[in-house]
Design a protein around this nucleic acid. Sequence first.
RNA 1: GCCCACGUAGCUCAGUCGGUAGAGCGCAUCCUUGGUAAGGAUGAGGUCGGCGGUUCAAAUCCGCCCGUGGGCUCCA
Length: 643
Amino acid sequence: MSTVEIELELPDGTRMRVPEGTTSLEVAERIGPGLARQAVAGQLDGAWVDLRAPLWRGGALRLITTRDPEAGQVIRHSAEHVMADAVKRLWPETQIDVGRTDHSEKFQYDFDIPVRITPQDLEAIEAEMRRIVEQGELFVREVVSADEARRLFESKGEPLKVSRLGDIPAGEEITLFRHGSFVDLCRGPHVQNTAQIGAFKLTELAGSYWRADESNQMLQRISGVAFASEKELAAYHKRIEEAQRRDHRRLGVELDLFQFHEWSPGSVFYLPKGFALHQRLVDYVRGLYRKYGYQEVMCPQIFSTELFKVSGHYELFKDDMFLMRGDEREEIALKPMNCPAHALIFRSRKRSYRELPMRLAEFTQLHRNERSGTLLGLTRARSFSQDDAHIFCEPDQVQSEIDRFFEMTREIYRDLGLSALEVYVSTRGSEFIGEPADWERAERLLFESVERAGFDYRHKPGEAAFYAPKVEFDFHDALGRAWTLGTIQIDMAMPGRFGLRYVGADGQEHEPAMLHRAILGSLERFIAIYLEHTAGDLPLWLAPQQVSVLPVTERHEEFGRKVLDVLQVAGVRAELDNRNEKLGYRVRGAETQKIPYILVVGDREQSDGTVSVRRRHRKGQQMVGVDEFRRQIEEEIMTRGIS
RNA sequence: GCCCACGUAGCUCAGUCGGUAGAGCGCAUCCUUGGUAAGGAUGAGGUCGGCGGUUCAAAUCCGCCCGUGGGCUCCA
């Protein structure tokens, strides 16, 4: 036992001196037997430490017990091992690849199993897992040398694992975790024993490519969820149900917004209400284009592929383009993006620095032949439109253009009530066009701008487009999947490929800088995410139908029409519901259609010239004069109140 | 494109062992004129995703195709 001591600070502020090499489990035991029993892992200065790992330095130590929300991550990680153990017990020739690194939601392992796993097999695996959990097998942590680890997995006939072992840099500590007869290469941390896995469920069966490369063999991926208790598992199922209620595909049907048909997979049919939403968004962005100095253009849908040969898309994007034969031998493509066409506009005549920055915006439809397996409702479509624009400017204007773009981005996301965004700066990968020095300058510019804008961002090295480093704004759908909406990219290729030039103040020709940018991104994807974000309760200014006027009986219909007329003349999207149904029925209909305002007109309203106003999500009704209501709603629409 | 699952009325779904289909909602008509989340009656609607196979007989079993969903890969 070392005589060197380290000092630990516990969450309650007390300090404890223990010999170097003490494990956090031993610390837990010193604090109390209850804590030691319930502990699943430790966190030293916020970083996970396995309970059985010796502590070599002091710091703030927190012991995570089954009662802490963070325990779920450890429990899922351990359930992952139990699942692999169960699969190996059922099919001993199975090779196990690796599990998940992120256990915040679920766990998974990729397997090379000699048989095709079926959903029935999942039940068998669960039953086996249950046995292992009930046995309360102890997790054991073991530090080994690379050679020992290699010999172990070679002897177990696991070449996949031996290959993974090769990825660990020399000199890094290699740890194994065992429970019962199962052993896997693993960093941990793990629970003390399998009995701490309170509840679990295998949820998905899928394929995945070995090392995420589709030229490699496909493994079978089994995923599941695990929690400290059955109660938490039940809560999880409830969350999933809630998410399904928010699914934009479901809301699209329920609210009569859009539909799909198998004869045009990946392309949406906007129904009147869905198109109204689309149009309101476009109107809104158009208004901001005036404010921020953009000019809107409309370019052709189809082009000779010559255009995309110049832009470089033909070479790198061909598989994603819809190609057709023209009259002659000419090959035609539906445009997958607007940038090459905008480059043609720019170079259609000699440009002066006085015209810059030139900001060309376009909303027209784009078509990309996405692989069938990637389509997903409106979030991944083959036909979509973007609030797309390209900015041509002098190189020393790039900085201020990016700043201005971020300003506009903030304004839009604020107006829409979207705050839960993630910002990423993606930098150069292995394939790129241009000079590394230029890339570095562009990347530095992006980093500086994002910081100046005050965005909390993360870096994605190697994730840039081949022609541009970019900033992305990601949002999550109801099931937690991240989708990029806004983006800005500094183009390193297009100005050169199209030979773009402008005459500067010095009378010389220069190459302009080119920025690609979008804020909502694809309108289709935006609508999907936004519907899921709002659960279909669109803010008044975007709601396809803002008001439903309900005459109590037929005798109030005429007055109802007058009210309707006042609103429609004012530009309010109102409808009269004079169906031969009771009032309660029609109120219910308006509520399930998530219409923001219900106006009831009966005898009282008719004689007073008022309407009885029922605002969605607010209790009770108010009698208001017709003109007064019109003023109120106009005001609320104009200020884009987010309810 | 790859792996797994699913596809029955406009929507949500039932349909046992193979014997050519049901419910609720919605829709239509009629009755009802009803004051803030479902009034009543009657009725119409289906080549059971498509094509082939097995069988006396297929929504049901098998094969292929299409579409949708969960993942992989890819991306707005």
